[in-house]
Design a protein around this nucleic acid. Structure first.
Lengths: 298, 298
DNA sequence: CACACTTACGATATTCGTAAGGATT
DNA sequence: AATCCTTACGAATATCGTAAGTGTG
């Protein structure tokens, strides 16, 4: 039994005419005749009664009709779904992004992606840097956006831009007027930062320690928003990835470029190393690269 | 997309090896390679990642796998069901039979049928003669067993045997000793018969009227069993198709051959005229003919 | 270098369309 | 006589297997 044969049967059964079925199938009458004959032989009995003037279904043909309908509908649907998947007319990508990126750069990137591929669904997992890496590793998501991981075994990292830490100070602070600040100047004030397991926190401590500087931590939070609010209300100062510049500004803080040392880390797209990406994920990665390439260091 | 291609994909996806899949499919490696290639081209993208040393599924291949499994399972199942239908390993026949036949000859005929085709289900509709004809006409059943209908437009009648009316008398009646009775002798007694819409009743009245005899009906019932019981308990006498002989005997009546006139009607199988019968129905008809042919007039 | 998949090519099968045949209205 | 399905046959197409090619571990 072949797909062609079954399709031929369905066409004849629905029109009850070989001639009409022919047009529907773009096939000559003899070819159709042979197809039906072949189907009947392969199944071991007659499906259609052909008197020269009329075509009817045998009881067995009658019982095959609904089965054939369902089978061919499923068949065509499967074919269509796969084609759509490949042409990006259908699909789903799961993406994990660290919060700072997820709530700053990501929305506009997703807008661009959706404009180009409106039928692709995107699932965003807004999780901390470490979990992003973990989710990509465990194949819970196809793509991740995070700082470049130290140990990248099994992971491919495609840098998007370099993110540099900037100072956040209260709007009414004298520091807010400076165009650039040295870490030493910033750290004269109470320092507010994220709690310990955070990548940002560890990174800061590590880089500053290398310069012989210790963080004078006054307050800790585990939410960047809270840190922003605390700075804005005058509790102290902080340093955050430049990614969060706009967000900090909206919360009422002022951002100032930091030097000595310049602390910066590449941010990029993580994907499973040897693993093939779905067409949809490839497209998303491209859009991410395209929308973020021009602005090297935000 | 063809069945072969999908089957090839499934085999490779499950074994993750072209070589192993080949054996499973009884196909050479190049042919398999071509099949996969063809499938990928028809769907518009890659399904398998072939490094020379390993085979993996792309995300799209991963998404096709369950669809392919279901599709092929349905396909094979449909093919199998149809083959079984044609080889009488599976199927269902609906049969209508008049009660006198249904409860006398039919059980043994069905036994014979079941012995020969144990997997064919039979639905028996035990309905009165007129409804048998009606159900065959409306195609509610494929076969009917009834007296030969007068107007048989659209129906094919295949006679099985001729059924002759016999007298039923109480066991202690003097008539029970006779080897044969004339109608005139029988009708000296109170007559018990079925109620009016019954074919048997109408037939009797019609045939006797032709001889100038009128039925002296004393009691009426619409169940043959009741008639039998009434006779057995001495209320009167009756006449029933010879088919019911054994049943009447079991109820306590005695059956005696009737003459002057001999009232007889062919009993046979009814089927839709031009209509094709299912293979299962044909087989049932054959068994009916075979089991009832030897005993011409029971 | 050995294994596993791909490409090349000739042989075989299948399928298709044109033409002729048969049966019914 | 016209219509509709089937059979016959030659041509085009597809598919298969053998043999050679290519890249990886």
């Amino acid at each position: 039994m072949t797909v062609k044969q079954l399709r031929a049967f369905l066409a004849v059964a629905q029109t009850l005419s070989f001639t009409q079925a022919c047009e529907h199938l773009h096939l000559s009458q003899p070819a159709l005749s042979l197809a039906i004959k072949g189907l009947e032989e392969s199944l071991g009995g007659r499906l259609l009664i052909r008197t020269t003037r009329s075509v009817r279904l045998t009881p067995e043909g009658e019982s095959l009709l609904p089965l054939a309908k369902r089978l061919l509908a499923d068949w065509d649907n499967t074919e269509e779904v796969m084609r759509q998947r490949f042409t990006l007319q259908l699909g789903r990508v799961a993406l994990a992004a660290m919060p700072s990126f997820a709530c700053n750069q990501l929305p506009s990137a997703l807008m661009a992606f959706r404009r180009r591929h409106p039928r692709i669904k995107v699932t965003v997992h807004d999780v901390i840097n470490e979990q992003v890496i973990d989710m990509v590793r465990r194949q819970r998501v196809e793509l991740g956006i995070a700082f470049e991981p130290a140990a990248s075994e099994g992971l491919a990292f495609t840098p998007l831009f370099v993110d540099r830490f900037v100072a956040v100070v209260p709007a009414d602070s004298p520091l807010a007027e400076a165009t650039t600040l040295r870490w030493a100047e910033l750290l004269r004030y109470d320092f507010i930062t994220l709690q310990r397991p955070s990548m940002v926190r560890l990174l800061l401590e590590h880089e500053l320690a290398a310069q012989g500087i210790e963080l004078p931590v006054a307050f800790e939070s585990h939410q960047l928003v809270t840190v922003g609010r605390m700075v804005a209300s005058g509790l102290g100062v902080s340093a955050v990835p430049a990614l969060c510049r706009r967000q900090m500004h909206e919360l009422g803080g002022r951002c100032v470029t930091l030097t000595e040392p310049v602390i910066a880390r590449p941010v990029g797209v993580l994907s499973p190393a040897g693993q093939e990406l779905s067409v949809a994920a490839q497209a998303l990665q491209e859009v991410l690269a395209a929308t973020l390439a021009p602005s090297a260091t935000p």
